[in-house]
Design a protein around this nucleic acid. Structure first.
Lengths: 237, 237
DNA sequence: TAAATAGTGTCTATGAGACATTATGTA
DNA sequence: TACATAATGTCTCATAGACACTATTTA
């Protein structure tokens, strides 16, 4: 098809205005028995001094050959840059794309939102990085009282709705506990995310089904507590 | 905050390269007892002459004040332009955003995919429009043999996965039948979308639950067939 | 009357919710 | 021994799948 080749080589992108494209991250973990989201304090206008989701612009190449980074790669890069976390050890998935006109006062910005689940044993290692002055894990239940930049409140809201739904029919809770965990510990994760405690007996029943299905296995040792120790489990593979 | 005002008025978008942003539509309906997707034949390079999803670029304003159309509006506009369908009468929802580098050979294009469900009684009115030479409803089961432009095959695949999942816990099947319908008709929709026939008795049981919940009501008249006529229903509100 | 399909009923397996009970560790 | 909590068991109810059966229309 030299016809097409000729077309491509002669092609000049028409100069219609284009939006900026960003990725924003709803990074969640559990600390002190509370579901928390990572926010960064903005050092620049607009919304200077307000809390916002970590994120940044997608790197786009100039040419048709070199087009820049994939969206997923941009999300992983921002995660790495702004938190220092290893993207390989964090659950990361696209959430929704927010692109209303006027959502950024500077210019048209379309943002592809992702949500990430960080194991609580990794959360303490998060450190401020990139062009960020301050980073903090906020209890999601206090966000109502907090003014977030842009439409980031909506984005967090959708992320919470999403993970609550997915908790019921996927394995994502496994990304909110350490590598090994007890049944009550996993049960608490469900309770915290869903906002209501789970029945111990009924939860154990589901848990045992997962065991039989081979998604979990018992790990050596016991978890020592102030009363009866609990058996320890881990995810298979 | 005159500080912020001053910033905004002096702000000049940095001249990093930006991607083009498009919307693509997976428009589905049921014709002749088959789930079908609307494809258009491309008249221009790249992929000239191949079938593709209808779609187009999002209109973006030049200034910070006039930023152009919302993503959802762009999807509705394209739906209207390329099919002639009234967006008010079609179910339309964002699906996923595809933005791999290189997915368009001309330049970096990030496309926000939507899926639409068209009632079969409206489907025949679809007409070629916009910059499209040909429009056709394809049985989704023959798409394997068809070479689609760009990554549109992946997009259709994801749309099908999505609606099959949503069929189980939402009302979207209601957007794939005419305004009034019989129980067997709605049952066939489920069978067609899911790819396996539903048991008449069990389906009727679910249907009756929806009736009791007030999501449906009986409509006057009967559907005349070649054997026993069936009662006719419609959605409430 | 036969064919076709609308519509009903039944049996069983499964899973969720509520809750009582037992087991095993620590203080 | 008292206490805390891990772990087990039981009862009930809602729902899904498989499938037998009845009802009502047309040809």
């Amino acid at each position: 098809m030299s016809d097409e080749k000729a077309f491509l080589s002669s092609y000049r992108a028409k100069d219609y205005p284009r939006p900026s494209v960003a990725v924003d991250l709803v990074i969640l973990t559990i600390i002190d028995a509370q579901l928390r989201v990572l926010l960064v304090k903005r050092r620049e206008h607009p919304f200077k001094g307000q809390w916002a989701l970590p994120g940044g612009f997608v790197r786009v190449g100039e040419s048709a050959i070199e087009q820049g980074e994939d969206l997923d790669d941009a999300a992983r890069r921002e995660l790495q840059e702004e938190t220092g976390l290893d993207p390989e050890r964090v659950f990361l998935e696209q959430l929704y794309t927010f692109g209303k006109a006027g959502r950024d006062p500077r210019m048209r910005v379309v943002t592809v939102a992702y949500y990430a689940l960080v194991r609580p044993d990794l959360a303490p290692f998060v450190k401020a990085g990139g062009d960020v002055s301050d980073v903090e894990w906020f209890d999601v239940s206090v966000l109502d009282k907090l003014e977030l930049a842009f439409d980031h409140h909506d984005i967090v809201e959708m992320a919470l709705t999403r993970i609550r739904g997915k908790l019921e029919y996927t394995n994502i809770a496994f990304d909110l506990v350490p590598a090994t965990f007890t049944i009550p510990e996993l049960r608490h994760v469900y309770g915290i995310v869903l906002g209501k405690p789970m029945d111990p007996g009924n939860f154990r029943r589901s848990f045992n089904r997962w065991l039989e299905e081979g998604r979990l296995e018992q790990a050596p040792g016991k978890r020592i507590t102030t009363s009866k120790p609990a058996a320890v489990y881990r995810f298979k593979r």
